[in-house]
């Protein structure tokens, strides 16, 4: 039943470009999809290990920059007489590089940041993202600084001479984002249902207790960060080759906040949460536009909703809906003593 529902949803999503002949709406859906992937990756850290990382946009941006730079090629002087140059690489390979480099940065930053917890952890993650933004802004030789990386090539897949798929147009990009999104979903699902996933959830619930029964705390936190950073990097790579321009503002704190709002509203620590939250906040700006609200209204709405969700839906929409559903079926059948927080663990 549940499987069937998932497949029906997927079929519906896959059919969208076939009947929707409004390119602009498709563009909005693609952008929302990219942010949903990023939010899903943040959920792994925020929802499953319970670490509020507010530097997540760093991995998204690193993925975008690494992938763009690999596909464009670059030459930098690391020392006055030592130059490193990289020729342009195919886009699929670049995107893979972006994912891996973001994962690697996740490992490095995770190793360093998990020395501290709580407020310190939050601030150190914010600082990492900000330092990386300033590097992107000032290392002009590599990143073009505020001039942005321009004319980033789009993805082409195929066998030379036989056939080629080009991801220039919107429907193709829509399917690409959908495919990557499904892959990320499956990976996260398998991970949280594995031994490692149970260890992570144990950490979230009670770190000292988990450590005392032999869970290697740092190891699992770093593992989660690597996977999470790699996925955020993949989302960044998708973004770079779809929008085809990347500037240091991809590292702005506000994008991390957007991802956090998506996860918290949808329901952290649930598989569907970031998707529901991402869909709401990905499409909300366009709905507000249609109502002819000025752009600031969008952010004010974000801010107010964030506060309201914390007060009235602290677990997020998905657990609330699930409780409501179980509450209803409980009346008809046997009571279902399910807790939102343990739901994902099973």
């Amino acid at each position: 039943m549940k499987q069937g529902l998932t497949i029906a949803w997927l079929l519906f999503l896959a059919s969208v470009p076939l009947w929707l002949n409004n390119l602009y709406v498709l563009h909005v859906l693609i952008m929302a999809g990219i942010f949903i992937i990023a939010a899903m990756s943040l959920n792994l850290l925020l929802g499953y290990t319970g670490q509020l990382s507010l530097g997540h946009v760093a991995f998204f941006g690193i993925g975008a920059y690494a992938s763009s730079l690999a596909s464009l090629g670059f030459a930098v002087h690391l020392l006055p007489d030592w130059q490193v140059s990289v020729d342009p690489k195919p886009v699929w390979f670049s995107m893979l590089c972006g994912t891996l480099i973001a994962g690697l940065c996740g490992w490095a930053i995770g190793r360093l940041s998990f020395k501290v917890r709580g407020a310190y952890f939050v601030i150190v993650t914010v600082s990492f993202a900000e330092v990386i933004r300033l590097v992107a802004l000032n290392w002009v030789e590599l990143t073009q600084g505020p001039m942005a990386l321009n004319n980033i090539p789009y993805l082409r897949l195929g066998i030379p001479g036989l056939f080629e798929l080009s991801f220039l147009r919107k429907p193709a990009n829509y399917y690409l984002v959908l495919a990557v999104g499904v892959i990320c979903y499956v990976v996260i699902r398998r991970l949280v249902h594995s031994r490692a996933g149970r260890a992570m959830i144990a950490l979230r619930e009670n770190e000292p207790l988990a450590a005392s029964v032999g869970v290697d705390v740092t190891r699992y936190l770093v593992l989660a960060t690597i996977v999470s950073a790699g996925m955020a990097g993949a989302a960044g790579a998708l973004y770079a080759h779809y929008v085809r321009i990347v500037d240091p503002d991809v590292f702005l704190f506000i994008y991390t906040v957007t991802m956090v709002i998506m996860v918290v509203t949808g329901g952290k620590g649930t598989l569907a949460g970031p998707i529901v939250g991402g869909a709401i906040f990905g499409l909300l700006p366009e709905t507000l536009r249609a109502l002819e609200a000025p752009p600031e209204v969008q952010w004010v709405t974000y801010g107010v909703l964030m506060v309201l969700v914390v007060y009235f839906l602290p677990d997020g929409i998905v657990p609330a809906l699930r409780n409501w559903w179980h509450g209803r079926s409980a009346v008809a059948a046997a009571p279902a003593p399910e807790q939102a927080s343990t739901e994902a663990a099973r």
């Binding site: 509020l52 906040v257 956090v260 600031e296 952010w299 801010g303 909703l305 964030m306 506060v307």
Partner: peptide, 15 residues
Amino acid sequence: TTMLVMIGAWITLQN
């Protein structure tokens, strides 16, 4: 939790 609320306040005030 309070951090999330303050982030909400920050975005709202700025805009």
